[in-house]
Amino acid sequence: MKLLSLSFLAVLAVVPGSALAEDSVPDNNWRQSDRGPPQTHIPMFDLELRFGPYWPQVDSEFNTSKGPYETVFGSGPRVYVGLELDFVPLRIPYLGGFGPGFGWGWTRANAPAIVVSTGKPSTGENTSLTIMPMHLSAVLRFDELMRRTGVPIVPFVKVGPAVGVWTASNSLGTSQYGPGCTPSTPDMKGCVAGKGATWGVHVALGAALSLNFLDPAAASLLEHGSDVAHVYLFGEWMNDILNGFGSKKEMRVGTSTFVGGLAADF
């Protein structure tokens, strides 16, 4: 009993001492100031700015060596730009966030029209094909890997329905095709307008590299100032299977390509 009492007193004697020791910690502790305030929330939104090459698969519909797309626009890729907003409110234990994502993209092919009599490119008229691929996907972001291990990589997968809205045009406006149709007589009876929408499926697999490790203090300040938890550099393989599910009446405007860009979750 005596020993117990002594121990208790000893503890009482040490506690104020340690409190004093804490008071003496200097203000210029570089580690503490560099670390910044701790992360406070799990982000639910992810915004992506996307870039990549785009090869519309228009010619896959035709059994010829050189389809109409390649004949007019050539075989080179076109620039694709896009935006995507994912909302991942659901947490799957040990995996990450899950939710819907909406993406919108834009790409355009442009080239001179072809003079019928000579087969050569026209000097006075251009023709273009503009495609806006959009999708509504189920998004799974495997961010628990980063949260639990600190490895700044977030793999993700996206699957969902997609649609490609397209417009074929020339110098006078939307293209017209049909007997007696000219660009100057748009929407005449019997003319087919060069515009439409093609349904399909959007599949994407990729990974995002969190850039927070480059400057943790700045990242932390950014989060507290604007709720942006991470800024990512990402790359993904994107397959827009826009073929109208095999319909002959829809132009195949999808592509299989790699895209990359910047993303931020908040």
């Binding site: 029209a113 023709t127 087919v192």
Partner: peptide, 24 residues
Amino acid sequence: EKTDDFFSKYREAGGQAGGCACSA
């Protein structure tokens, strides 16, 4: 002079996509 734009080439190749004025 008469020119072929992409859509003409597409339709001439057998493509069936496209819409009328109502398809806007």
